[in-house]
Simulated scan of single mutants.
Amino acid sequence: MSTTRGEYVRAQQAWAVDQERLRHSQALHALGEYVMFCLLWTARDHDNGLVGLCTVCASDRISRAYGQASRNKCPQCFGTRFEGGYRALIVRPAIFTDADDSQSFTARGTVSPQEVHLETTSDFRVRSGDYVMRATGERLQLRAPQRTTLRTGFGTPYQHETATAYNLARAAVEDEDSVAYMIPPDQDTLAEILSRTGAVPPSFGDVEVIRAPLIPLHERD
C-alpha cells in the first residue's frame, strides 16, 4: 500500500510586494526631496532600435572610428553620441545622505569629489552615468545602482514585479563646467519645478520627458 504525500509550493504574494513598496514610497514623500533624474541613452538602447545617432557629432570620421562622440559638450546629445542625449527627464522623491569630502588624483589633477548615497522609487531604472539634479543647484552623476527585491515565493524576482527599492545608488557632484549643466532645464526653472506645492503629491507631467520605457523591456530582470 502506497501513499502520496502532498507538498505545498509557495506562490508569490503580490500583496506583500505592494505593501513594502507603499512603505518605501511613504518614507520618500515624507522625508525626501523632489529631484529631476536625467536618464541617458546608451549603446544598448541604440542596438535595440530605440534611438539613432546624433546628427551633430556622431557622423564625422573620429566618431565612426572610435564609436564615441567627438564632442563632449555637444548641445544636441550631451556627449552620449545618441540623438537627443537622454531617454527621460523625470521628477521623483529621493533621500540623500550627507556628502563626504575627499580628494582623488585624476587626469585633471587633484579633485575633491563629494559623494552621497541616495534612494528613490523603484518604477524606473537608473544606469551608471545618469544624472540627478537638485533644487540646490547641484547636479550629480550616478554610479552603479543596487537592487533590492522582495522574494515571497519561488518565483524569479523580476524588477517590475518584486522590486521595492531598486534605485539605491552612489552619486558624485559634477564640476560646474561639466556637460551635466547643459541639460535643460536651467537652474532657475528647475528650482521652481522642484518647489511645487498644492496637490500631494504634486503633478510633474507637464515638465517630464519620456522617450522610452522607464524600465526597458530587455532589462526587466
Results as ranks from 00 to 15, higher is better:
R92D: 04
A171P: 03
E119K: 10
Q76G: 00
A94G: 08
G49R: 04
E161G: 00
Y181P: 03
G137L: 11
T80M: 08
R87V: 01
T148W: 00
V56S: 12
T148D: 02
L53T: 12
L40S: 10
S63G: 14
R81E: 04
N48T: 01
R147Y: 01
M182T: 01
G49Y: 06
S122P: 09
H46N: 13
Q159Y: 12
G85I: 03
A171R: 07
R127Q: 14
R147K: 15
Y86C: 07
E83T: 06
A88R: 07
R71N: 13
W41C: 02
F124R: 08
V179M: 09
D101F: 10
T42E: 04
C74Y: 05
R108W: 02
F82K: 02
C38Y: 03
A43F: 00
A43E: 15
T120I: 10
Q141Y: 08
C74F: 06
A165H: 00
T152N: 09
D175H: 14
S178F: 08
L142I: 15
R44V: 12
A43M: 02
V51G: 02
R134D: 04
E138S: 12
R92C: 07
I95K: 09
V116E: 04
T156V: 15
R143T: 11
C74I: 03
Q68V: 15
F105V: 15
P75Q: 10
F96A: 04
A171Y: 06
K73G: 07
T106K: 10
Q76R: 15
G85Y: 01
Q159I: 14
M133Y: 11
E176M: 11
G67E: 10
A88H: 08
P157A: 09
E138F: 00
Q159M: 14
A163F: 01
T120S: 13
A88M: 08
Q146D: 13
